[in-house]
Design a protein around this nucleic acid. Structure first.
Lengths: 145, 145
DNA sequence: TTCTTCGGCTTTTGTAAACTGCACTAGCAG
DNA sequence: CTGCTAGTGCAGTTTACAAAAGCCGAAGAA
């Protein structure tokens, strides 16, 4: 019932890109160091994000990553699901067949019913917020120097 | 980002008690067999539920468990939290000090902000439903014989 | 007192997250 | 075209925790 490090790192990594000018290509090493994330682990995460079209990779000298869309077009949901796959509170939520219990009580599972509701609430929050929202919050709370 | 087996077993176990007449003392072995749950594992779970005052244990011959409150007075939240402890999507949600990242960005964490919102939605669902609700759903969907 | 069932603690097992390493490839710079 | 840099892809290793099993003791009914 917790977020994985991969998800956490993914959001922070992408958020770091969003903080900068969108034309700036940023290497993994910089993100990794700035955010305190193991570089190879972050590489794996960004590979997924790259394939999903959330970030764009640039190889060669002075290569790195940029966002491939505007920050307000990237929902938190899509970042999380890219990294972890569709999250489900229980396996059976996605497909009834996953539930080894269902036959025993006439094919109906009350807990599943509740989890579907709960999950919907969660997803709505993540779908209803974009990178731009997080960025705005962060800027509003940054201590001015 | 998933429920543990302990939580799942806990809800099904308590729900099984709720299905029966409230005066009936039901031994673990019966619940365990009926629900397909390892008995010793269920014992551990029910120990917590007993301490939390959700179920009441009866030792000795023909002992077992009963609900210690009415089904409509037992929220799903209290079952889940008893078994697993307060669930948090990230450690830092409970207390800022848990966040090793907060200093780096001026003590503010945008992801945390979002998770607090998301968590609130989840908790509301679990707090807003009781065992009686699950029981009612189950009965409404039982295939009549 | 004896059998039954829960109580508490310890240990084992299994699995997935978290992280590491290496060989390879694409691309830019000079 | 040479050489360096940074991402790609896959195959490990380590670690942590969930899940389960085991053992002995305590409480309670017959």
């Amino acid at each position: 019932m917790q977020f994985t490090k991969a998800e956490e790192y993914g959001v922070f990594g992408v958020l770091y890109l969003a903080e900068k000018d969108s034309s700036l290509v940023t290497p993994l090493s910089e993100i990794s160091e700035a955010q305190g994330i193991p570089e190879k682990f972050l590489a794996k995460i960004f590979q997924s994000l790259s394939k999903a079209g959330i970030v764009r990779s640039h190889r060669g000298v002075r290569g790195g990553f940029t966002l491939s869309k505007k920050a307000n077009e990237i929902t938190i949901k899509e970042i999380l699901e890219t990294i972890q796959g569709p999250y489900h509170l229980m396996k059976c939520v996605s497909s009834m067949s996953e539930c080894d219990r269902s036959e025993k009580i006439n094919g109906y599972c009350a807990l599943r019913e509740l989890l579907v509701i709960a999950e919907k609430q969660l997803v709505d929050v993540f779908e209803g917020h974009t990178l731009a929202d997080l960025l705005a919050w962060q800027r509003a709370n940054q201590i001015p120097h």
